[in-house]
Design a protein around this nucleic acid. Structure first.
Lengths: 144, 144
DNA sequence: GCGCCATATTGACATCGTCAAAATAAGCCA
DNA sequence: TGGCTTATTTTGACGATGTCAATATGGCGC
């Protein structure tokens, strides 16, 4: 799914990004980032909690939720928009979209033709769009 | 938001649609459709439960969830994709997308340029897309 | 180091959605 | 119409996800 070696940024890089956002560099934030990067793909907050437990890193559940929101705020993570349901996160690479298979439920990445946000424009009179995320639904190659 | 008079279909029309789908016409299903149509806009299952209580229509919570899924199945409702979080439903008009204001949280409709599904095509090799829903995020006119 | 204040922790709690089993009623047919 | 079959509803409990408030901890500027 991810290119090999794409295991995310180093602690140093993550710290840098946090500081630049005026935020503190804390053990939970680094641990959450590492866990999500190691898991790869689209993961829920609870997946991260479980992964941290596996790694014997003591981080409270609340902190995982907080850290995910914070990391997202500075652009280190993105929410994978896969429609209603639990929130999914992924370490940000390039801006992209998602395909949700209605049979197996898998979430697959779909490259974005423009690669930067917003990749679609909004009709006038509604507001100012900062991003446009697309969710394709259908049947994936394996299930089809 | 909706054109006036766009209060949804009549019971007769809803019943027709259900029967055509091989489904039974039941009080809960009609009541759920009416409640959602009367509320208008993008509503959660719990909104519908509350509206039905207000109207003194005794329909169990479970039945509301079932009815929403059923009505969606025959195309009488659509799920408003507003990203992660509770599922939102709306009485179907034309196929369209959504804009979510990150300040006030409102969900606004965005007309679809093509007006039918799928309105965007998927790169080859992933699967067969049946629909593509777009979520714009940003700041709405009133908040901007 | 010191100390302020952002963050982490804790446990309870709200919300959303689902499950299984028993009761009800829709629609077919005589 | 009345009975039959079985889809649908109801009920109450349950699991998962996310949030809150109060207290404890520790990052980082000094």
């Amino acid at each position: 799914m991810d290119a090999p070696g794409h295991r995310g940024l180093t602690d140093r890089e993550v710290a840098e990004r946090l500081r630049r956002g005026g935020l503190r560099v804390t053990r939970p934030r680094l641990a959450v980032y590492r866990a999500l990067a190691a898991l790869g793909g689209h993961r829920s907050a609870e997946d991260v909690v479980a992964e941290l437990r596996r790694r014997r890193e003591r981080v409270s559940r609340m902190s995982v939720y907080n850290a995910l929101a914070t990391l997202r705020g500075v652009g280190l993570l993105m929410q994978a928009n896969a429609g209603p349901g639990g929130t999914l996160y992924e370490t940000r690479a390039a801006w992209h979209h998602h395909f949700v298979c209605r049979r197996c439920g898998r979430v697959l990445d779909v490259p974005c033709v423009r690669g930067r946000r917003p990749c679609l424009s909004l009709p006038a009179g509604i507001g100012r769009a900062e991003e446009a995320q697309i969710v394709f639904r259908g049947v994936c190659r394996d299930c089809g």
